[in-house]
Design a protein around this nucleic acid. Structure first.
Lengths: 215, 215
DNA sequence: GTCTATACCTCGATAGAC
DNA sequence: GTCTATCGAGGTATAGAC
């Protein structure tokens, strides 16, 4: 239990510092100072700096992925086993976008940490993302159930593009704001989700999205 | 001239090593050993490791941006001052995708370096990318000339999405391949450009792209 | 099993000789 | 311009206290 306290203190301090200052600027000595523990405690509990970062990222990723699957299941149950393509894309990009965009003031350390992870793409996190494939295959499978006549390759491309748009929007919020001189509204998260989903749908079907597929 | 030789040797060796092994695994001592120069030479000629990386990236970026603008101008001249939206998007994403995708064996160090830069997004390179805004505004301006009745915000969103799709395709080639079990063809670069452009167009106009706007 | 003090090694940077 | 020597910072490893 004393062990738990130290471990938790490290996790909390590390997530906060990385969220605030990014991965490049935070050293292990910074973290242990903030957590008020000994330098060697990080290696004892996590093995290495990279494994600490990996654990932080995995914890938050699991939460996001769970929320994605929850939305997917809910849509499938509401549709008697078939979600609409629109709902599937929304389940994929909605949780991430809702977590990372919106009013900056009230953002949690967890949300800001995930934004950093997206922007800075440090080696331990890259390795984990490469294993995200199985999770994505579930959304591909859902789309194939809904659109059995579609070319499977087009389905994968559409998923790939949906993720691309969502992640780049999180990553390059600032560039989009500056390029558009503030014209692109990045506070209305639902509007952004709708936009990404609608483009992903068009990528898939070659047609503009109908406003509402099901009430 | 002796100075030039040293400087060039460092640049060549650094680009090759970064291309081969990524930024995280290559130290300055690796670079100077490969270039057969003294350790202090890097700091003398470039100031710091980060400035060396920045110079490598800027050099290659300028080449890409020049090619983008060349394509844009060519299309505008062919269209008497107005390029089609299709041509504008193609000018934006074509040079990058042609440089970074396609047959892996014949990829130059320069191309592989740019792929690494895209994937690993190391601090000095992030800083430079943030100044890319002026370049993008030229493409926004071209689109506004071609589509004067469109909502400007939609134009910026479409440009943002086009870049997102292109960069993610370069960055996550492997994930897309694995997710689709090899079904998505990443060797046919022109087909990928067409796909990205067509989705960007739909994002902009809300309609599927016509096959050829102008012969 | 948990934690601490401390030493080690690699890396980027720099001062000063040539 | 180039080189040697060395410094400080950062991540890691270990020996031993509790």
């Amino acid at each position: 239990m004393a062990a738990d306290r130290t471990r938790t203190a490290i996790i909390t301090a590390a997530e906060r510092l990385y969220a605030e200052r990014g991965f490049a600027d935070v050293t292990m000595r910074d973290i242990v100072a903030a957590a008020d523990v000994n330098l060697a405690a990080v290696n004892y509990h996590f093995g290495s700096k990279d494994e600490l970062i990996a654990e932080l990222f995995v914890t938050r990723s699991i939460a996001t992925n769970r929320e994605r699957l929850r939305e997917l299941k809910a849509a499938e149950e509401a549709g008697n086993g078939r979600a609409t393509a629109q709902e599937i894309f929304a389940a994929l990009v909605g949780p991430t976008l809702r977590g990372c965009l919106g009013e900056a003031k009230q953002r949690s350390d967890a949300a800001r940490f995930m934004i950093r992870a997206s922007i800075e793409s440090v080696p331990p996190i890259r390795k984990i993302k490469n294993r995200e494939v199985d999770h994505l295959k579930r959304f591909a499978a859902a789309l194939r159930r809904t659109l059995p006549d579609h070319d499977p390759a087009d389905i994968f491309w559409a998923l790939h593009f949906a993720l691309a748009m969502a992640h780049q929007t999180i990553r390059d919020t600032e560039r989009l704001t500056r390029m558009s001189d503030g014209l692109c509204d990045l506070d209305n998260v639902q509007a952004i989700i709708d936009r990404v989903v609608s483009v992903a749908l068009m990528a898939l079907t070659g047609k503009p999205a109908r406003a509402k597929a099901r009430a």
